[in-house]
Amino acid sequence: MSFVDLIFLICGAIAIFSGWRVFCTDSMVRASFFLLISFIAVGVIMLLLGAVYLGVALFFMMAVEMMVMALFMVMFMMNPAGLNPMKMVHQDKFAALAGVVAFFALSAVAVFGDFPDQPRPSDLDPVVTLGKELLGDSMLVFESAGVTLLATMIGVVAMSSHRGRYGDANAGSRPPGLEPGGMPAFSGDQEGSSGGHHHHHH
């Protein structure tokens, strides 16, 4: 068994173990970071496969993503950060069954599948090749997806922010009438800040 095999086995074990722990912990913060550990182990496996850029990119993508996810879950979910213990899973029996079936199905593909034998050419530079692929023929797709996402994010922040350029965003606002031009369903001082209490469902 070579050094690379050993690293692969260790990382594979870490990825599976921490992936399993995600569903056992009672805290959203811990769950996020167990998932991060799992992804980092997968990233190392990608490095072993010679996908230098993708492996490293997975590290920073997942680090930012899990950090933001943990933060937002704590902000928006009831029972933030598992301060009070709670059951974190729904339909766990079905999900576990589906997971096991999927695992074995994918493993079966990996083990019994007939893969073409195409060794990597020795002069191939994976980073350059990937760059040519991303910024060559597929550039339009990637760039339009990227710009759309960015515009969405900026738009969401601008629309949801209370602080507007000309004062509070909801100052003087009025809920729509029940019929065109009619009275709103309810009115009062608390409109600006009401509505938030409907967020409690899980």
């Binding site: 590290f59 920073f60 899990m66 980073v127």
Partner: peptide
Amino acid sequence: DLTTGIVLWGALEPLATVVIFLHGW
């Protein structure tokens, strides 16, 4: 001397953010 040294450096910064958060949390 990684061919993706700059990207790895870019990955260390968010990972450090995660670790700093965990330290306080």
